[in-house]
Simulated assay, not measured.
Amino acid sequence: MTSTKTDRLQHFGIKLFSGISPESTDLLAEGAKHVPFQMGQTVVAAGQKYPGLICVLSGQLKYARANRSGKEQVFEIADQGDTLGYEGIASNHAIDHDVAGRKNGEYLLVHYSNVRKAMERDPVLALNVVREAGASLTRMRKLADALSLKDANERLAAWLVTWIESSRKETPDEPFQAVLPFTQSEIAAQVGTVREVISRGFTRMEREGLLTVSGKRIRILSLDGLRKYSSATA
């Protein structure tokens, strides 16, 4: 389905388009397409180029790489409102990772040529691109630092702290319970290890009185303790 000029992209909750002018909205909507995707479906494969900005309207996308043995490293999870493909705005080279569905959903594909034109006319959009692309680069740098400087247990603790702080507006009173949004295998793929190491990491943190885990249900006993654990080698 092709969008019309009367679409207001902000209504989809795309952070990149927050505060832009109606004229920019109309330009970006020209030729934009709504594309459904399924869990596990490859949207853009390694060796291909991004076809345009991919704005997640629903569901989740992930971008990841796998080695020859099949071990997957997930670099980022894109939720509703997130955008992928910033590198293609200036120079669109083939990517070295896969973009695939994690949860069934739909994305909006926006032509790069329209993005460039809108950025030239709308400083708000240009600043949004710099902010969102910069935030993505910061997350990548932190992941690279964690993989090179922290052991797997410290990376797991750091992942837990980041997840808790990003999913809650205020720091909850302790102890508190939550439901993990990923399986242990999926967490392992994000912190650069395997499921068995994640399981042992949770067991070790339980012994140290930081948390308890039962399936996907987790009870945080000491968030400050997790913070200290995650920064042991920082």
Rank of each mutant, 00 (worst) to 15 (best):
M1Q: 12
M1N: 07
S3N: 10
K5E: 14
D7G: 03
D7Q: 12
R8N: 15
L9E: 00
L9Q: 01
K15R: 13
L16P: 01
S18N: 13
I20Q: 01
S21F: 09
P22H: 03
P22K: 05
P22Q: 02
E23H: 11
S24Q: 05
S24E: 04
S24V: 05
T25E: 15
T25D: 15
G31L: 09
G31E: 06
A32W: 05
K33H: 10
P36Q: 03
F37D: 00
Q38H: 11
G40N: 06
Q41H: 12
T42N: 09
T42R: 12
V43S: 03
A46C: 11
K49F: 05
Y50D: 02
Y50P: 05
G52K: 01
I54M: 04
L57Q: 13
L57E: 10
L61T: 00
Y63L: 10
Y63A: 00
A64W: 06
R65Q: 08
N67D: 15
G70Q: 06
K71R: 13
E72F: 01
E72P: 01
E76F: 10
E76Q: 14
Q80D: 01
T83P: 00
L84Y: 01
I89C: 08
A90V: 12
H97M: 11
H97E: 10
D98E: 12
G101V: 02
G101E: 00
E106P: 01
V110A: 04
Y112S: 08
K117L: 14
K117F: 09
K117E: 15
A118I: 07
A118S: 14
M119W: 04
E120D: 13
E120L: 15
E120V: 05
E120Y: 10
R121V: 02
D122M: 07
D122L: 09
P123W: 05
L125G: 04
L125P: 06
A126K: 12
L127H: 11
N128R: 07
A133K: 06
S136I: 07
M140I: 11
R141Y: 10
A144W: 03
D145W: 12
A146S: 14
S148E: 12
L149D: 11
L149G: 05
D151F: 09
D151A: 06
A152C: 04
E154L: 04
R155K: 09
A157K: 06
L160C: 07
T162V: 03
W163P: 00
E165Y: 10
R168K: 14
K169P: 05
T171P: 01
T171D: 05
P172L: 08
F176C: 03
F176T: 04
Q177D: 14
A178I: 04
A178T: 13
P181M: 08
P181F: 06
F182K: 07
Q184W: 02
Q184P: 02
S185H: 07
I187W: 02
V191F: 01
T193F: 02
R195Y: 06
E196V: 11
R200S: 09
R200C: 03
T203V: 08
E206Y: 03
G209H: 07
G209T: 08
L211S: 02
T212Y: 10
T212R: 11
V213H: 08
V213A: 13
V213L: 15
S214A: 15
G215I: 06
K216H: 14
R217E: 15
S222G: 06
S222M: 03
D224K: 11
G225R: 07
L226F: 10
Y229Q: 09
A232L: 12
T233N: 14
T233D: 13
T233V: 04
